[in-house]
């Protein structure tokens, strides 16, 4: 069964991004801006920009899509809700399924998990970070080892390094500035352009999930908060 391209949305951190991707590794269209606290105003301009790049009309473009993918968390609580509410609206209006994607898994996938385990981290509003460890599954999909951590970056790094089967690569802003520790020798900090989640990876992962038959109804996709309210 052929799966139509997927529209991906990411508003989990400081970037706001929208992309259409699938089946190939390159997105068909992509829009991404640095927008801390600007997701509410900018997201739909990004959706319109992607449609415009593709030459699609809003009313009919939805028929060319197979699903809406969106980052569900962990991340900025408000950012996640803006992206998820927007994704739900598009999915409901176009009659499409949705796929929820972890922004940490999207970062690890973009960094390349085929090359070994990756620890991805996203900043919170406090000094803590959200972080998790990913390895490649049998189909090359990201498999999370252990739980999502919500703690100081230094503590999270030590914990994930101990959990990793072999040398660990790190992506995400929280890892920058963490001082050397006993685990440092087995670590490699990846390039800065891999520091944030992006919708192109979200769309591609959601397309793969759709190919595995993992689409969900719009009401079923909800934010993943990790922690209790009011802390991120």
């Amino acid at each position: 069964m052929s799966v139509l391209p997927v529209l991906g949305i990411d508003t989990s951190a400081d970037y706001c991004s929208v992309a259409v991707a699938g089946p190939g590794p390159q997105p068909l269209a992509e829009w991404r801006v640095w927008a801390p606290r600007g997701h509410s105003e900018l997201l739909h301009q990004g959706i319109a920009a992607v449609f415009s790049d593709l030459g699609w009309e809003p009313a009919t473009g939805g028929r060319r899509l197979g699903a809406i993918g969106v980052t569900t968390g962990p991340g900025s609580f408000t950012g996640l809700r803006i992206g998820i509410a927007a994704a739900k609206g598009l999915a409901l209006a176009w009659g499409l399924p949705m796929v929820g994607v972890s922004p940490l898994a999207a970062m690890a996938t973009r960094a390349g998990i085929a090359g070994g385990p990756v620890a991805a981290a996203i900043s919170t509003r406090s000094r803590d970070c959200f972080a998790a460890l990913f390895v490649a599954g049998t189909q090359g999909e990201p498999c999370q080892l252990g739980e999502v951590l919500a703690e100081r970056p230094a503590a999270a790094r030590a914990r994930l390094a101990a959990l990793a089967p072999g040398p660990l690569r790190l992506c995400g802003r929280p890892w920058r500035g963490v001082e050397a520790g006993p685990e440092t020798d087995c670590l490699r900090l990846l390039a800065e352009d891999l520091d944030d989640p992006c919708a192109a990876t979200v769309a591609m992962m959601a397309w793969q999930a759709m190919a595995r038959g993992e689409g969900q109804s719009p009401e079923a996709v909800l934010p993943v908060y990790v922690r209790r309210s009011g802390t991120a």
């Binding site: 009313a59 803006i82 509410a85 409901l92």
Partner: peptide, 19 residues
Amino acid sequence: VGSLMVGLAFAKSLAFAWD
């Protein structure tokens, strides 16, 4: 503000998708 953003994001999407 956080509550308003949910309704507004949802409404904008419906408006866009239904043109």
